[in-house]
């Protein structure tokens, strides 16, 4: 699905020991398996079921998503800066697909 594009906002310039906020958004319908299409057919469940964030290869945050999470999952969390490095974000779809994005963060 090429329509699924994750977006992440990471502060570009940060200082050590600062707690920064990371905002993520992914475009995804999050079919809960209970909604119906205009013809009255139930749309099968298809959701993003997991999100994880790694910093310099180490997992720092993970989240399990259930059908009760809204369309276009929006996740915000915080991170305490220790060094410059790279974030890797990954979303897992019920259909086995992975969506990922990386962001650099530089300590000034």
């Amino acid at each position: 699905m090429s329509s699924i594009k994750p977006r992440v906002k990471v502060p570009k310039e940060v200082s050590i020991d600062e707690i920064v906020e990371i905002k993520t958004l992914i475009r995804h319908p999050m079919h809960s398996g209970r909604m119906k299409d205009p013809e009255g057919q139930t749309i099968p469940r298809q959701i993003i079921n997991s999100f994880s964030a790694k910093f310099n290869g180490k997992e720092i945050f993970q989240m399990d998503l259930e059908p009760s999470i809204s369309t276009n999952p929006y996740i915000v969390f915080q991170y305490k800066v220790k060094e410059s490095g790279k974030f890797d974000f990954e979303w897992l779809d019920d259909n086995g697909e992975k969506y990922s994005i990386s962001k650099e963060m530089i300590v000034s």
């Binding site: 180490k58 720092i60 945050f61 999470i69 809204s70 991170y79």
Partner: peptide, 28 residues
């Protein structure tokens, strides 16, 4: 959530690296 078809909404796994225990999301 006690009134949704299933009680589970989300499970967050935190690590000490995060420096704070705080998060935001949107739910149905």
């Amino acid at each position: 959530a006690d009134g949704n078809p299933s009680p589970n909404v989300a499970k967050f796994s935190f690590t000490p690296e995060m420096g704070s225990c705080s998060a935001t999301t949107r739910m149905r």
